[in-house]
């Protein structure tokens, strides 16, 4: 038994070493960065003073923090609601067999597979105020154009639209396979009992889909908290911080200007990590729960 454990761990050693080196060490570094008063000079040459939680205090006192936190919540909740709603509707639609359904479902994966910078720059151009196709479509319906990316009222909406578009395929694929795992007899039984298709969905399909829905939403939550590329490329968090989230703010503080502020940047990052890990723990717990049941 001892030998078996030894051999088993021998195969795990490279992974454990890698996790310590490429995860543990960088994460400790961000903690270290967040409790010191770094300048460009001390960042390179070392010797920055430990200032405890002062960076965190600065960050929480900064008015940008409230905006970024609020934007993160709005961005995450709105993205999840629309991705999940549209994804579920599409999954239900595709779960009926019809010609070409498998091919079309595969095509729906394209947005999810494209590099984020590709999707983000395409949306940025589509939302362009003067020559963008979105405003052209609005004009066609007789509506006034909107300054999607350059107006503080619309920038957050624009990045939510783009992020929803990217997230729909994931929701569709996962919810679709969740629907396929519900035995056909269940639907037949509901139909025999005279349930309308809305009733069958409301009282049979949707409750049975709940575990899959929970995991989909949790994974979506963790993913959406991380979103940085899309917002940074489309709006850079602007104008005037109107689409700043914690992720873009952290990047902006650390890398966005000629005067990097690594301390506050890491502090924001660590706040974000806390939110992600809490979501992660909920996910792990729900997985355990399902393994047990």
């Amino acid at each position: 038994m001892f030998r078996k454990n030894l051999v088993g761990w021998a195969f795990l050693v490279p992974l454990v070493a890698y996790l310590l080196l490429c995860y543990g060490y960088p994460l400790l570094t961000t903690v270290d960065l967040s409790i010191r008063d770094y300048t460009v000079r001390t960042f390179v040459h070392g010797g920055a003073q430990v200032i405890g939680l002062a960076n965190y205090g600065d960050v929480f006192a900064d008015p940008v923090f409230r905006t970024a936190l609020l934007n993160t919540v709005v961005f995450t909740v709105a993205s999840l609601v629309f991705q999940y709603g549209i994804g579920l509707a599409l999954a239900l639609f595709f779960s009926r067999r019809f010609r070409l359904s498998a091919t079309l479902r595969a095509l729906f994966l394209v947005p999810w597979l494209l590099p984020l910078i590709v999707s983000a720059s395409t949306w940025a151009w589509m939302f362009n105020s003067e020559a963008g196709v979105v405003n052209a479509a609005l004009a066609w319906f007789g509506l006034d154009g909107v300054n999607w990316l350059t107006s503080p009222d619309w920038s957050l909406v624009s990045v939510i639209v783009a992020n929803t578009w990217i997230g729909i395929p994931f929701n569709l694929v996962v919810l679709y396979s969740g629907l396929r795992n519900i035995p056909a007899e269940v639907h037949e039984a509901a139909a025999l009992d005279g349930a309308s298709s809305w009733q069958a969905f409301r009282h049979v399909t949707f409750p049975m889909l709940r575990p899959v829905s929970a995991v989909t939403l949790l994974l979506g939550l963790v993913y959406t908290l991380k979103v940085f590329d899309i917002i940074w490329i489309m709006t850079r968090g602007g104008p005037g911080g109107s689409s700043t989230t914690l992720a873009t703010w952290s990047y902006e503080l650390g890398f966005g200007s000629m005067l990097p502020r690594f301390g506050p940047s890491s502090a924001v990052g660590n706040v974000l990590i806390l939110m992600a890990v809490v979501a992660g723990l909920v996910y792990v717990r729900s997985q355990r729960h399902r393994e047990a049941s």
């Binding site: 490429c22 060490y25 994460l27 960065l33 990047y251 690594f262 990052g269 990590i273 979501a279």
Partner: peptide
């Protein structure tokens, strides 16, 4: 679950 931006900060420091 760890956001890429945080990994990037830590790795940059290293």
């Amino acid at each position: 679950m760890i956001p890429g931006i945080i990994m990037a900060l830590g790795l940059y420091g290293i």
